[in-house]
Design a protein around this nucleic acid. Structure first.
Lengths: 167, 167
DNA sequence: CTCAATTACTCAGGGCACTGATTATTTCTG
DNA sequence: CAGAAATAATCAGTGCCCTGAGTAATTGAG
């Protein structure tokens, strides 16, 4: 009888929100190209010639995930990967014509989907929605991604242990 | 130059929010038990003896995912799975003592984590945050999960095509 | 009562997401 | 300049998440 109410758990809500979005994307935007893939295309439309790691940073994908996503996009012929002559560690990424066309097409559909997705909220509520989610995400990101090395206080916040217990 | 601003895309924000949560969960709650796994434990504390499908419904996991999650929890000895004598298709699920202990332990840590996660928001903002996310999720869920069979209007909303284009 | 539909679960397959370890290249330092 | 440290990418491993297809058991209609 010590069950908690998950509707007050932001993590659970976040997961449900993403599932809902996934679903809508699938029916309204594309079954081929996923939302993270679109984010990568979009980043490369804005800044052609970025390297893999930086694209990942722009769209919020870690080194392993971005590698997979890019490999799929490359396999589909939507982008080209060439070694940076200036720095042999990097691969420079650039959309193909097909990639650019796909991005343009999906941009339209994505806008429509966002409208449907956000339809339950008024215009002001939508603004608040964006603001609140962003603030929470940024703050959590900041906890992990220290400007200064881990402070004693932040360490305390993150790792306060239940005395004598560990999972 | 037709790149869009992803910070106004709810799907992108939802993904980032979930990533942020995942991270915090890992450092503040458990590296062994995931948030969806905790949700399942929680559902079985509230209603012991549920079958697999119903647990999935309670916590928002589809048939395939719930099967995997439950198989992991069962492998770790946190729950028992027995065939329903009344209905040979079902498996009835029940936490072991170890499962109950784990749930109790994680409940405390989860509460602490939620506090840290939501710290950037005032109390009123937190309420709004929950409300907005829930309304959006429920609405999207409703689009897919028809009470009445698919209406012409909803079909129109979901599948309006760009004339002459398909991905 | 029998056969068809439904229901619970499983399996195969594709994609996202993270960590820890490894490799290749560049950069920094003594 | 040589060796150490840092950086970009890869790989292996685990887990979540969905769809479509398949299996076994139950239910329901004729």
């Amino acid at each position: 009888m010590a069950a908690v109410d998950l509707t007050t758990h932001p993590g659970h809500l976040a997961r449900r929100l993403q599932q809902a979005h996934y679903l809508l994307w699938n029916t309204m935007v594309s079954e081929e190209i996923t939302s993270p893939q679109f984010a990568v295309l979009n980043a490369l439309v804005a800044e052609p010639g970025l390297d893999q790691r930086t694209v990942g940073e722009r769209v919020g994908l870690d080194r392993s995930t971005i590698a997979e996503v890019i490999s799929r996009l490359s396999r589909r012929g939507l982008l080209d990967k060439v070694r940076d002559p200036q720095d042999g560690r990097r691969f420079l990424l650039r959309l193909t014509d097909e990639g650019t066309r796909t991005h343009r097409k999906l941009t339209v559909r994505t806008a429509r989907m966002n409208q449907v997705f956000l339809a339950p909220l008024s215009a002001e509520e939508q603004t608040v929605f964006f603001d609140l989610i962003q603030r929470v995400s940024d703050a959590a990101e900041g906890l992990r991604n220290p400007t200064e090395p881990l402070t004693t206080q932040r360490r305390a916040v993150l790792h306060q242990a239940t005395p004598g217990e560990n999972i």
